[in-house]
Design a protein around this nucleic acid. Structure first.
Length: 260
DNA sequence: AAAACTAGCAACCGCACACGA
DNA sequence: GTCGTGTGCGGTTGCTAGTTT
């Protein structure tokens, strides 16, 4: 039967976005909100695939995005979440305000992975590497990476992986060994909370701005990181309604971007 | 100074899922 | 239940900037 391509391959532009394209996309979304992505390029006057528009918006243009490298606390949280969720980057990103799945995935592949390997930890299984070379040797239950890490309030607290009992042999073929563990079934109250839907739905940290909560996480405030916030400190609390964006000055997009 | 190499990141691709008809 | 469509997700690619030789 064949699936219809997400976009007409002919006449669709690819590659890096220009400031002009960014402006058109932002202008459209601010005016109309996020609707049918397939229709967006046409309505916005862009020669782009709808998916490309969504990606650009999600990963770069969204005003609530933080920029820059992940800090220590975020990195630690990513590792902890990856140990439990596997490569489910969107789930991980959902726990990190202002970060995108793509960003976290990239950071994982370029930084964290190497760091873990250097520390003798398998970035896939989160088990010590020597255990795999020497399967008979019993590995310590606690993942050494996760002990003695600062918690999000700054003091030290063990955020150990309590679910590190040997993976069920029946699921050994699973490439994400930690998927079997129930993230909600966790003794650690902090991690329980982070993994809970309650956390996700907690509007006190959910976007657009939850300043104190950012700080508690050891993160900088979103303002000053996003090019949007740099230019529009008055962006409203009802961002997701998008109603207040109609008057936003888009000139920021004219600024010679670092890359785009 | 120039070429080769490496790292980091933005963007693309294809599959899977959700949902409505 | 099935089919078609839209969207989201994860893996991968390719470009660019920085570093090394």
């Amino acid at each position: 039967m064949g699936r219809q391509p997400c976009c007409d391959k002919f006449g669709v532009k690819k590659g890096p976005w220009t400031a002009e394209e960014d402006r058109k996309l932002v202008n459209f979304i601010l005016t109309h909100g996020q609707c049918c992505w397939r229709a967006v390029p046409k309505l916005a006057g862009l020669r782009r695939c709808g998916k490309s528009c969504r990606l650009r918006w999600t990963n770069y243009l969204r005003p609530d995005l933080k920029r820059g490298l992940l800090n220590e606390a975020e990195e630690q949280l990513v590792i902890e979440l990856h140990a439990r969720l596997g490569n489910r980057w969107s789930k991980i990103a959902a726990r990190l305000p202002g970060r995108t799945d793509n960003e976290i995935k990239n950071h994982w592949n370029t930084h964290i992975k190497k760091k873990l390997i250097k520390m003798g930890i398998d970035p896939v299984t989160h088990e010590p590497l020597h255990k795999q070379e020497n399967p008979g040797a019993a590995a310590p239950c606690h993942n050494i990476m996760y002990d003695h890490q600062p918690n999000f309030n700054g003091d030290h607290q063990q955020i150990s992986n309590n679910n590190c009992e040997p993976q069920a042999s029946s699921s050994s073929s699973n490439t994400t060994p930690t998927e079997s563990s129930d993230p909600n079934n966790d003794d650690d109250p902090l991690m329980s909370y982070i993994f809970s839907d309650t956390y996700l739905e907690d509007s006190t940290w959910n976007f657009p701005i939850a300043r104190e909560e950012y700080c508690e996480f050891g993160m900088s405030s979103p303002e000053g990181n996003s090019p949007w916030f740099l230019a529009h400190n008055d962006i409203g609390d009802d961002y997701f309604g998008l109603g207040r964006f109609n008057d936003v000055d888009l000139s920021v997009l004219d600024q010679p971007d670092d890359k785009h």
